[in-house]
């Protein structure tokens, strides 16, 4: 199964969580802090976030309750959490039914709160924020259930965060947002947004964001998306992974990857390894490359792992080479870790 050259991943010591992971897309965030030899993990459980810091010897836990702004009495469910790494600072961003919260990276201080306008929606329509990514060196982009992408301008320090732009090109709820992880070719965008219908938009970031290409829906939700060296990797509800050219929106590869709904993709920027996790209880590692002669995009299967009786809802690489990854699943109070020996 695994190509001999790539080496096998083996199961390592898993991490116990204080609460189980919810069945939400991309429900695992990993922040490696190589300088301090620490790795932070977080998953969403209902209205709270489980955070674990691993220092090689042991684990320290922290539960973050979603604090809501305003006078509202009801708790709201979290939809996603992600660390956003900007050159100047790292913020932990939480999305929920009520809005968007930004914390210092350790979750200690809330630096910003953005409420969603619940009243302007018809009652049958779910209201939430979902899809989080740092982009363009100083922005954090967050999607909403009405298809908007809010662009926040993040100062190097302090709480003076502002909405600098609202991107209105999606008609369905945003599912995921990804920034370029490698080197964008000339003219290619550096941000991709995905929605419930499967539409993808490729943007170039800057003072004003510009839409470069729109990849039309084909009837399947795109639950997770990544962007690497001008290649868009998208995971869908029908179990497929599709690779598109970011500049033109052309389909370059189609992988019948999973037997059920894909919940998570991740990409290791230094090697082009792609990680996928789905409800079928499998995680797969793929390798993306570009044929230098033909400029074609190539993809090969490197490794498959069955996480027995677990509908995978989160999967992330733990290092930029993709030599280790972490996985969690619905109803599971554990993060499984795998590494290459």
């Amino acid at each position: 199964m695994a190509a001999a050259t790539s080496g096998m991943y083996r199961k390592e010591k898993s991490i116990q969580l204080k609460s189980s992971s919810a069945a939400l897309y991309n429900n695992l965030s990993v922040l490696p802090l190589p300088g301090r030899q620490l790795t932070c993990f977080s998953t969403v459980h209902g209205p709270s976030l489980s955070m674990v810091t691993a220092d090689g010897l042991g684990f320290s836990h922290r539960q973050l309750q979603a604090k809501e702004g305003g006078m509202t009495v009801s708790t709201s469910l979290l939809t996603q959490a992600a660390w956003c790494v900007l050159p100047s600072r790292v913020l932990l961003v939480l999305t929920s039914q009520k809005g968007i919260q930004m914390y210092e990276s350790d979750g200690s201080i809330m630096v910003y709160w953005h409420a969603l306008d619940v009243t302007e929606h018809p009652p049958a329509q779910a209201v939430f924020a979902r899809g989080i990514a740092a982009a363009g060196g100083r922005f954090i982009c967050v999607g909403t259930s009405s298809g908007l992408v809010l662009v926040f301008d993040i100062p190097p320090k302090g709480t003076n965060i502002m909405v600098s732009e609202v991107l209105e090109r999606h008609c369905d709820a945003i599912t995921d947002i990804a920034a370029e992880l490698g080197q964008a070719p000339d003219g290619a965008g550096d941000l991709v947004t995905a929605d419930d219908a499967g539409t993808l938009c490729v943007w170039s970031t800057g003072e004003e964001f510009a839409l470069l290409s729109k990849i039309p829906a084909f009837g399947c939700t795109c639950s997770s998306v990544k962007l690497w060296n001008g290649i868009v990797a998208a995971g869908y509800g029908n179990g497929q992974i599709r690779l598109y050219e970011a500049t033109t929106g052309l389909l370059r590869a189609e992988v019948n990857a999973h037997a059920r709904w894909i919940y998570a993709l991740d990409l290791a920027p230094q090697t082009g390894k792609l990680l996928s996790g789905a409800e079928d209880s499998f995680v797969h590692v793929w390798k993306l490359s570009r044929n230098l002669d033909t400029d074609d995009v190539e993809v090969e299967h490197c490794h498959g792992e069955c996480v027995t009786d677990t509908q995978v809802c989160g999967a992330r690489f733990c290092d930029p080479e993709g030599n280790s990854f972490a996985v969690t699943g619905y109803d599971l109070s554990e993060i499984f870790r795998y590494g290459r020996t």
């Binding site: 399947c220 179990g239 992988v255 074609d296 190539e298 299967h301 498959g304």
Partner: peptide, 29 residues
């Protein structure tokens, strides 16, 4: 599920949209 393909096939396309390569993999399922 209805509308899902059995996992195991990778298809690659060139700039014109023509299929240029097809590989298979095993999944354990």
């Amino acid at each position: 599920p209805w509308g899902t393909e059995v996992p195991g096939l990778i298809r690659m396309f060139n700039h014109n949209g023509d299929e240029v390569k097809r590989t298979e993999f095993t999944t354990g399922g």
